[in-house]
Simulated assay, not measured.
Amino acid sequence: MTDDDVPTARSVDSDLFITVSGPPGCGATTLCEGLSAALDCGYVSGGDIFRDLADERDVSLSQLIAKTDETDEIDRALDRRLRTIAEKWGASSKPFVLESRLAGWLAGNRADLRIWLDAPDEVRVDRTRDREEMEAEMRVREVSEAGRYKSYYDIDISDQSFYDLSINTARWSPEATLEMVLTAIEEYDPEVDEGAFPTDDFEL
């Protein structure tokens, strides 16, 4: 992705803790960069932390992905780091964006707004052609991750019922997707937050 691909964001005054989740190629990185600019805040990506874990172990991303099928240590190490970040920013009363497949679950009730992004398989494959993993790897990883989440935490990653927004990013441009989310942020009223689905912390 180049700087030209990042939507130009308007400024929004907010102190919300926002999670963004979805499969590879869903547009999460583009949205997070737009939100970071609009809210003047940082964001953390699960993918970046996964790369940090690979660097710490001196292995490639593909090698680390392969190891996740052999042991639960990699997934749990990643999830522990993400939860620590969620705990920190959830108590900070400052805007922040956390992105990962499990971000909404890991943040639990600390999150103010939980977003799920998706797009048809062919669209996501096309978007990820320049990444390290190939189409077959991406599909295998998605199936494998879903099984591990269910096995480790009894989480059904396909259950989108507790997300506040679920967006098919193939239907709108990155700019339009960002505008929808920014509008939701501006209209969010914590005093009338009756529709939130509570989520309990689970053991990592």
Rank of each mutant, 00 (worst) to 15 (best):
Val59Phe: 08
Val59Met: 11
Val59Lys: 06
Val59Ile: 12
Ser60Met: 15
Ser62Asp: 14
Ser62Glu: 15
Ser62Met: 03
Ser62Val: 10
Ser62Ile: 10
Ser62Gly: 08
Gln63Thr: 15
Gln63His: 15
Leu64Lys: 09
Leu64Asp: 07
Ile65Lys: 04
Ile65Glu: 14
Ala66Arg: 10
Lys67Arg: 13
Lys67Ile: 01
Lys67Pro: 00
Thr68Cys: 02
Asp69Arg: 08
Asp69His: 11
Glu70Met: 07
Glu70Gln: 12
Thr71Trp: 03
Thr71Tyr: 01
Thr71Gln: 09
Thr71Ile: 04
Asp72Cys: 02
Asp72Thr: 11
Asp72Gln: 03
Glu73Asp: 11
Ile74Val: 14
Ile74Thr: 14
Asp75Ile: 07
Asp75Gly: 11
Asp75Cys: 02
Arg76Pro: 03
Arg76Ala: 02
Arg76Gln: 11
Arg76Asn: 13
Arg76His: 10
Ala77Met: 04
Ala77Arg: 14
Ala77Trp: 10
Ala77Pro: 02
Ala77Thr: 13
Leu78Thr: 09
Leu78Val: 06
Leu78Ile: 10
Leu78Cys: 06
Asp79His: 14
Asp79Ile: 06
Asp79Thr: 07
Asp79Ala: 15
Arg80Ile: 07
Arg80Met: 15
Arg80Tyr: 11
Leu82Trp: 14
Leu82Lys: 08
Leu82Val: 13
Arg83Gln: 13
Thr84Phe: 04
Thr84Trp: 08
Ile85Tyr: 12
Ala86Arg: 13
Glu87His: 03
Glu87Phe: 00
Lys88Tyr: 09
Lys88Cys: 02
Lys88Asn: 02
Trp89His: 13
Trp89Ala: 00
Gly90Met: 04
Gly90Pro: 03
Ala91Ile: 00
Ala91Arg: 10
Ala91Met: 01
Ala91His: 06
Ser92Ile: 09
Ser92Asn: 11
Ser93Arg: 09
Ser93His: 08
Ser93Met: 00
Ser93Leu: 00
Lys94Cys: 04
Lys94Glu: 15
Lys94Ile: 00
Lys94Leu: 09
Pro95Tyr: 12
Pro95Trp: 12
Pro95Lys: 05
Pro95Arg: 08
Phe96Ile: 05
Phe96Val: 06
Val97Gly: 04
Leu98His: 04
Leu98Pro: 02
Glu99Ala: 10
Glu99Trp: 11
Ser100Ala: 10
Arg101Val: 01
Arg101Trp: 06
Arg101Phe: 00
Arg101Ser: 00
Arg101Gly: 00
Arg101Met: 01
Leu102Phe: 05
Leu102Met: 12
Ala103Met: 07
Ala103Leu: 07
Gly104Val: 04
Gly104Ile: 04
Trp105Gly: 05
Leu106Trp: 06
Leu106Ser: 05
Leu106Ile: 05
Ala107His: 13
Ala107Ile: 03
Ala107Pro: 13
Gly108Leu: 10
Gly108Cys: 11
Gly108Thr: 06
Gly108Arg: 10
Asn109Ala: 01
Asn109Trp: 01
Asn109Gly: 03
Asn109Ile: 00
Arg110Leu: 14
Ala111Glu: 02
Ala111Gly: 09
Ala111Cys: 04
Asp112Arg: 07
Asp112Glu: 07
Asp112Cys: 02
